[in-house]
Simulated scan of single mutants.
Amino acid sequence: MQEEQWVSKFMDYLRVERNYSDNTAIAYYEDILDFQTFLNQQAISEFEKVDYLEVRLYLTTLKERRFARTSVARKISSLRSFYYFLVREEAISSNPFTFVSHAKKELRLPKFFYNEEMEALFQVVYADDEPLTLRNRVILELLYGTGIRVSEASDVRLSDIDETYQAILIRGKGNKERYVPFGSFLQDALTLYLEKGRSVLSQKYKKQHDYLLINHYADPLSARGIRYCLTKTIEKAALTRKIHPHMLRHTFATDLLNNGADMRTVQELLGHASLSSTQIYTHVTKEHLKSTYMKHHPRA
């Protein structure tokens, strides 16, 4: 089998057996293509001819190209998985990435919005009751009130919302489903949006579909569209520091932990596969506690 065919087969494996999203599979594919480019430069045409020395040389070139440690770690992980697949399929006898180590990842604390910044954002989306403002209100209440990802928000259908129990069915990474609860603020925002926002635009453009969030033509709002709406909201709030929409998810988790929620509950709400992904927020809450202590204790 040709090398390109093995790559194609690996992509099928990721999507079908591992149930990875298209975006995740594409990231793996790009990492493999980058490695193939390196192999071509070394006059190596077959994956099975790669050994530990070639792998070390590849890591050296990544360092020379000034890739961040997180990017190098991701590439190693992608290629280790790819070679594991080749071993499993008996295309090669051993995995040259098995014992490859790399520099420990930098600990980057998730950035979040402060209370006054959240208040500024909410003032923007509560400024009037125009259809698109009502939609933006739902976007903000939804992302901050549930902690779901922007990509997950774009996939929410009306049929996923259980108003009786105030919970939403969310399809997360790998098509894993989870229910997340929501509170009265989002409930009120949804009621007004469905009555005076979504229905008005749907009737105007004669569009009928089940997606919750819509654009100004009443078509389903994409994840990119949601990010655009949030960016515009952030600009109108006149927030000065560099911020991005994913910070709402970080703020959701940080606020829960700062107010006494347990780690397992936050993990389940965020849809993290492992607790280690959620534990990064403990560093944020520790910084919050330290800051509060230094500010208020007379002997700090």
Rank of each mutant, 00 (worst) to 15 (best):
S222G: 11
D188M: 07
S199R: 15
I148V: 15
R198S: 07
S222R: 11
G174K: 04
V180G: 06
R227Q: 15
Y193F: 15
Q208A: 12
G145Q: 01
L192T: 14
T98P: 00
A153I: 11
H102R: 08
Y193M: 04
A120G: 08
E177H: 02
V150G: 00
G225K: 11
L134Y: 07
R108A: 09
H209Q: 14
S93M: 04
D128S: 15
A103D: 14
E141Q: 01
S184R: 06
L230C: 14
Y228I: 14
D219F: 12
R227I: 05
H209R: 11
R171S: 05
P110I: 03
A218F: 10
K111P: 02
P181A: 09
L221K: 03
E117W: 12
P96E: 12
A218R: 08
K104D: 07
P131S: 13
L213T: 12
Q203A: 12
V138F: 08
R157E: 15
S202G: 00
I161S: 09
I148T: 04
F113V: 07
E130I: 06
P131I: 01
G172M: 10
L212T: 08
K104L: 13
L230W: 13
I148E: 03
V138H: 02
I168N: 00
N215W: 09
F185Y: 12
S154P: 09
H209P: 07
F185I: 00
K204T: 13
G147N: 06
R171Q: 10
R149D: 06
I234C: 10
E117I: 11
L212V: 10
R224C: 04
P220D: 09
